[in-house]
Amino acid sequence: MDLHTQLPVVGMVGGGQLARMTHQAAIALGQSLRLLAASPADSAAVVAPAVRIGSHEDLEALRAFAKDCDVVTFDHEHVPNAHLETLAAEGAVVRPSAATLVYAQDKAAMRRRLGELGLPMPRWANVSTVADIERFGTPCVVKTATGGYDGKGVFMIDDAAQAAELVAAGVPLIAEERVRLRRELAVQVARSARGETAVYPVVETVQRDGICTEVIAPAPDLPSEVADAARAIAERVASALDVQGMLAVELFDTDDGPLINELAMRPHNSGHWTIEGARTSQFEQHLRAVLDYPLGETQPTAPITVMANVLGGEPGGSRLDERLQRLLAEDPGARVHLYGKDVRPGRKIGHVTVLGDDLAELRRRAGRAAAWLRDGNPEGLHK
């Protein structure tokens, strides 16, 4: 308990943009959010007042951090599971727990558990040799079982021989069938320690080169039975895995219904639209859930919300501040979130959200805003 605010202290392991936006949500709730960041230059560390610098892989750093927190949560899934078990055994409240988080850390463990639950997903198998992949069948998708994100650790394999170098690296792998899909969907659901759940509308996510570039909420032209099935899947996963906090369920929209692709047990890029586009943002909802507070309403605030990620562009051109000012003058309704990160080509450095009722116009506005902030091309701003 923070003696100044008389409110619980939430500790978030990680100092990226998810922690930064969670810190913003914590301010409104009067919460004392503390961060364990790898560097004082991390996205959240440059704006939050209570930051401890340390590695999420260092048990002693985690112990020192957790002892001053009422509850510990995460902005990524990369904390060693054994460390989380140790913290809990020593009395720390960890949400989600190590036993739950493993299903977001290890794709093989996730697939096994989802199979036990009878939930829909692509055909899959553990593989460790080229022969295993040949037996599984190609074309297929080969994934590293741990450590992948934003398309990293995901390989499209047309011939098993293509995986020889990957297999030789000796990392745990799984193979999944390459499913025919109409598009990709996602559902965010919050679940508190007492078991209360709150589900957001199903959204469409647009991927390019393995990175989400655009989110449309709600997913356009989605039949109600598909939306209901997707939301039911998300609630079932949250309950069966005892999730405490935000859960993002990424799905493939197929002719046979939605199939589970990935899980994330934290705020997620596909939920950034909720800051302006829903009654309760995913960041506030995560705080409520891990504190076991009553959950907030998830209804949209506009008929349609479109979020476009801002990726880093090539060096040169006008300064980012100049681009921001120009964008705000050209499109005062665009809501810009910049993460304070060093710009590198392809790196997520922010996002832009627009709200309204004309899908084509919103996609045009969001896309041109993101492109302008990336490239500083004045012509792109007027397209």
Score class of each variant (00 low, 15 high):
Glu276Asp: 14
Glu276Phe: 05
Glu276Cys: 08
Ala278Phe: 06
Arg279Met: 15
Arg279Lys: 15
Thr280Gly: 12
Thr280His: 10
Thr280Arg: 13
Gln282Gly: 13
Gln282Pro: 12
Phe283Gly: 02
Gln285Trp: 04
Gln285Arg: 05
Gln285Pro: 05
Gln285Tyr: 04
His286Ile: 05
His286Met: 07
Leu287His: 09
Leu287Gln: 10
Leu287Asn: 10
Arg288Gly: 08
Val290Phe: 09
Leu291Val: 10
Pro294Trp: 11
Leu295Gly: 11
Gly296Cys: 06
Thr298Leu: 00
Gln299Leu: 08
Gln299Tyr: 03
Pro300Glu: 15
Pro300Thr: 15
Thr301Phe: 03
Ala302Phe: 08
Ala302Met: 14
Pro303Gln: 11
Pro303Thr: 04
Ile304Gln: 04
Ile304Thr: 15
Val306Pro: 07
Val306Ile: 12
Ala308Tyr: 00
Ala308Ser: 12
Asn309Gly: 09
Asn309Leu: 08
Asn309Thr: 06
Val310Asp: 04
Leu311His: 11
Leu311Ala: 13
Leu311Ile: 10
Gly312Thr: 03
Gly312Tyr: 02
Gly312Ile: 02
Gly312Arg: 02
Gly312Phe: 02
Gly313Glu: 07
Glu314Met: 10
Pro315Glu: 05
Pro315Asn: 05
Pro315Ile: 06
Pro315Trp: 04
Gly316Pro: 06
Gly316Asn: 06
Ser318Leu: 14
Ser318Tyr: 09
Arg319Gln: 11
Glu322Pro: 03
Glu322Tyr: 09
Arg323Ser: 02
Arg326Val: 11
Leu327Asp: 06
Leu327Ile: 06
Leu328Asn: 11
Ala329Asp: 06
Ala329Gln: 09
Asp331Tyr: 14
Asp331Gly: 07
Pro332Ala: 14
Ala334Met: 08
Arg335Ala: 14
Arg335Tyr: 04
Arg335Gln: 15
His337Trp: 13
Leu338Asn: 05
Tyr339Met: 06
Gly340Ser: 12
Lys341Val: 09
Lys341Ser: 09
Lys341Arg: 12
Lys341His: 08
Lys341Met: 12
Lys341Phe: 11
Val343Ala: 14
Val343Asp: 12
Val343Lys: 05
Arg344Thr: 14
Arg344Phe: 11
Arg344Gly: 07
Gly346Lys: 12
Gly346Ala: 14
Arg347Gln: 07
Lys348Asn: 05
Lys348Cys: 05
Gly350Tyr: 04
Gly350Thr: 03
Thr353Arg: 01
Thr353Asn: 14
Val354Tyr: 01
Val354Leu: 02
Leu355Thr: 08
Gly356Ser: 07
Gly356Glu: 07
Asp357Pro: 03
Asp357Glu: 15
Asp358Asn: 07
Leu359Val: 04
Leu359Gln: 13
Ala360Gly: 10
Ala360Trp: 02
Glu361Cys: 00
Glu361Met: 01
Leu362Ser: 00
Leu362His: 01
Leu362Phe: 01
Leu362Cys: 01
Arg363Gln: 15
Arg363Thr: 09
Arg365Ser: 02
Arg365Tyr: 00
Ala366Thr: 00
Ala366Gly: 01
Gly367Glu: 03
Arg368Asp: 01
Arg368Lys: 07
Arg368Gly: 01
Gly376Gln: 12
Gly376Thr: 09
